[in-house]
Simulated assay, not measured.
Amino acid sequence: MKRKVCIATGTRAEWGLLSGIARELASRDDIELQLLVTNMHLSDRYGHTVDEIIADGFTVDTEVPMLNDNDDDSAAATVRSMSRCMAGTADALSRLSPDLLVVLGDRYEMLTVASAALIFRIPIVHIAGGEISEGAYDDSIRHAITKMASLHLTATEENRNRVIQMGEEPQRVINTGAIGVYNIIHEPVMSREELEESIGMTVDRNTLLVTYHPATLDPTPVNQQCAALLEALDRFPDNNVIITYPNSDTAGQVIIDMIERYAATRQHRVKVVPSLGKRRYLSALHYAGAVVGNSSSGIV
């Protein structure tokens, strides 16, 4: 009998990390892979990246609507979206009945999915526990998921020890190394010509790759944070700049509006791309001169 393993994914960055694991699980004769797709993947505002998952040859077993693109980006709207995700996940788990649920990281949609799985008594495999995020509520969410999970796969030995210090059984906490590092080593990069044609901009050591997410616990207003970043970019007028959208966090739309206005007045050197996808993002990392902002995607 095959073991049913369900991977939950809600963002482009997370799927970029999980896709290799999904492909490996799908290749096994003893595993039935299930994909639960939610949040940003289903949003037109963020590029409807579920299409990229399907284009990669995967079957999406269930879509759980979460974001309403007509909503604002307030805390209340975020909580309402979480409630939609919780209800949809209950229906999805009832139908799929997985033996294991795999979640990665520290985002609020994964908190709702993990909470539902806990009530269903479905064992949770949590990837990337024990890490630290400053200035965001990600830390609290990550640690909450840790306490709900049965198996913990950490990126470093330090992170493994931190999970054990939280009271988890050492034999259930495994230092696997960082998926992002594995992907950077093993994912074939696009040729520079192919990448440049895809993005519509020269990408070389004079290019800055920029992502800025809301720092959700920072008392400084998001518009001031983002303005400081954009002012800093203007100090490098000879550099091309590729800016990707932030995640769907509270006040994320403020950042989207600001970077779109910024790029509109600097079209000769600034390009905004809602989602690069794993292959284009890792390729851009390969050719660009620097990563700018507060994304952890290029750093472990």
Rank of each mutant, 00 (worst) to 15 (best):
M148L: 15
E131F: 13
I119Q: 02
S115T: 15
E168F: 00
P123F: 11
K147L: 04
D106T: 05
V125F: 02
H126S: 09
I174A: 00
A128Y: 13
I119W: 04
G135S: 03
L118V: 14
N68H: 09
I185R: 02
P65Q: 00
R121S: 13
R160H: 10
H143Q: 15
L118K: 05
E157D: 10
A128S: 11
T62P: 05
M66L: 08
D139M: 13
D99Q: 07
R142P: 02
A136D: 10
A149E: 06
V102D: 02
N68Y: 00
E169G: 02
T146M: 05
T156L: 06
N159M: 12
L104M: 15
M86R: 07
E109S: 13
R95V: 10
T59H: 08
L118T: 11
D73M: 01
V79M: 09
A136P: 00
Y108F: 15
S94D: 12
L100Y: 15
G167F: 07
N70L: 12
K147R: 13
V60Y: 05
N159D: 14
H143N: 13
L101F: 01
A114D: 05
T59N: 03
A136M: 12
E131T: 13
S150Y: 08
E109W: 15
M166C: 02
G105F: 09
D138N: 03
I119H: 08
H186Y: 08
G177E: 10
I145R: 00
D139V: 10
A144S: 14
D71H: 13
I122H: 02
E63V: 12
A144D: 03
Q165N: 12
